[in-house]
C-alpha cells in the first residue's frame, strides 16, 4: 500500500504532502532566524554604541552576492517551469546556472571572511558583538546555502533519473527544493541591509 497524496493533491486541501511539509519546515526556519534577528535587535538596542556595518564589512562584494542569490532564485524557478513545459534539457541548463551562482556566492563569502581574519588587528567573532552576530547569522545562512547546493546538485545529477520513471513526482520535488531555495534567498534579502547597510 502506498501513502496517499505523495504525488497528487488531496482534494480538500489542494496540496500534496511534500509541499505542506516543506512549508511547515520553512515556518520553523522563520522562527530559527527570527530568534537570531530578535537577538540582534535586543543586543543592538541594549548598548550605547553599535558600529555601522560599513565600518567592518564590504558593501560592494555583498551587493554582488545579493545579485548572485537573486539570479539563482530566478533560474531555480525557471528550471521548475521548464519541467512544467516538458523541457528536460532546459531544466538541466537552468539548474546548472543555479548551482554556479550558488558557488559564486560561497566563493565571495570565502573572500569576505578571509579578509576579516587577515585584517590587522583581525576581525573575529569575539572582537565585538556586531562581528559576533555577523559571523553567526551569515555562517548559519552559509550552512543553508551548502545544504541547498547538495540537494540541488543531487537533483541535477543522480536524482534526475526520476524524470524518466515518475516525471510528475520529480517536478514536485523540484518545486519543493525551489521553495527552500527561495527562502534562503529571502533570508539574505533581510540579512544584507540589516548587517551591511544599517
Amino acid at each position: 500500500m502506498d501513502i496517499p497524496y505523495t504525488v497528487k493533491n488531496r482534494p480538500d486541501t489542494g496540496l500534496y504532502n511534500g509541499k505542506l511539509g516543506v512549508w511547515l519546515f520553512l515556518a520553523s526556519e522563520v522562527m530559527l532566524f527570527g530568534g537570531l534577528f530578535s537577538a540582534y535587535i535586543f543586543l543592538r538596542t541594549g548598548v550605547d554604541d553599535w558600529p555601522a556595518g560599513t565600518e567592518y564589512l564590504d558593501v560592494p562584494l555583498a551587493t554582488l552576492n545579493t545579485l548572485f542569490l537573486i539570479s539563482s532564485s530566478v533560474t531555480m524557478v525557471m528550471s521548475w517551469a521548464s519541467l512544467k513545459l516538458n523541457d528536460f534539457k532546459k531544466y538541466k541548463l537552468y539548474t546548472l546556472i543555479t548551482l554556479l551562482f550558488a558557488f559564486g556566492f560561497l566563493v565571495i563569502k570565502y573572500f569576505e571572511y578571509s579578509a576579516k581574519f587577515a585584517h590587522n588587528p583581525p576581525y573575529l567573532p569575539s572582537t565585538n558583538n556586531f562581528l559576533g552576530i555577523y559571523f553567526t547569522m551569515t555562517g548559519l545562512h552559509v550552512l543553508h546555502i551548502i545544504g541547498g547546493i547538495l540537494v540541488i546538485g543531487y537533483f541535477y545529477g543522480p536524482g534526475s533519473k526520476m524524470w524518466n520513471s515518475d516525471p510528475e513526482r520529480f517536478t514536485n520535488r523540484i518545486e519543493i527544493v525551489g521553495l527552500y531555495w527561495h527562502f534562503v534567498d529571502l533570508v539574505w534579502i533581510f540579512l544584507f541591509p540589516v548587517l551591511y547597510l544599517l
Binding site: S28, G35, L36, A39, S126, G132, F135, T136
Partner: peptide, 18 residues
C-alpha cells in the same frame, strides 16, 4: 527554533568567545 538559535549563540559564546 528560537531555543535552537539561543543554543547556537551560547555555543558561540563558549567555543569562539563571543
Amino acid at each position: 527554533p528560537p531555543l535552537e538559535a539561543a543554543g547556537v549563540l551560547q555555543l558561540m559564546d563558549r567555543v569562539v568567545g563571543t
